[in-house]
Design a protein around this nucleic acid. Sequence first.
DNA 1: GAGACTGTCGCCCTCTGCTGGCAATCC
DNA 2: AGGATTGCCAGCAGAGGGCGACAGTCTC
Length: 234
Amino acid sequence: FTSARLSNLKRHLKTHSDEKRYLCHLCPKAFRTATLLHNHVNTHTGTKPYKCSDCDTAFVTRGELSRHRRYKHTLEKPFKCTICEYSSVEASKMRRHIRSHTGERPYPCDLCSYASKDAYKLKRHMLTHTGEKRYECCVCRARFTQSGTMKIHMLQKHGENVPKHQCPHCSTLISRKSDLGVHLRNLHSYMEEAIKCSACEAVFHERYAFLQHKKTHRGGKGFKCAQCSYTCNQ
DNA sequence: GAGACTGTCGCCCTCTGCTGGCAATCC
DNA sequence: AGGATTGCCAGCAGAGGGCGACAGTCTC
Ligand SMILES: [Zn+2]
Ligand SMILES: [Zn+2]
Ligand SMILES: [Zn+2]
Ligand SMILES: [Zn+2]
Ligand SMILES: [Zn+2]
């Protein structure tokens, strides 16, 4: 702790020494100031004097209520990113966001070369070293490392009449959206170097069109050379 | 002193989307 | 029969939202 004024330092030192003269009568905890004790007692009694007028949540302090109202109701976001359109309610969120532009990674892992842009991702990453799987499917008891992974397991394995994703370029139906992305990249993206059909002179820049074309050589209508792979349709 | 207000740190949650092993399918 | 292909799947990282708590300051 550092401070420009000696008086502040003296006051700060008190926080280390004769602290916690205010005792909670409902539990063993103690506090430095009456206000802190008061707020703590409110957590026992559930007393939250500041009620939101637009929903039924309530808070211990006025500041918490006003932040809540910015998040949920007024959507006022005072902190604006100078690089993109993002804005945030809290300054710390903006600092965190800026790192997604700069790529700065201040949270290195002690056990591998990974470094994270925020504390939460590092903490989550550490679970990969311990092997902990803290989420369990309540139906089949399978375990997962992240809650979102379990959620999609629940949906895909135990869900009923889950809609699949229709590929916009062919008739394939795919369960997961991200797997449709893989499908699109593999079969429906433009390829710089063309593929030539081994049975004719046709040339393609899209894998799906190439595979569709190859099927036209099948079905017994073609004439196939017995010595090599040459075929033709006439 | 006791509140009120502000700025900050930290915890934990969700939504999102890519990766690579695996097993089913196809030819 | 056997290799190539490809959706299924869990693992795992990117980004952002919401709240609890507290230190410092100011006002009364
Ligand atoms: Zn509200
Ligand atoms: Zn930005
Ligand atoms: Zn690591
Ligand atoms: Zn399950
Ligand atoms: Zn398709």
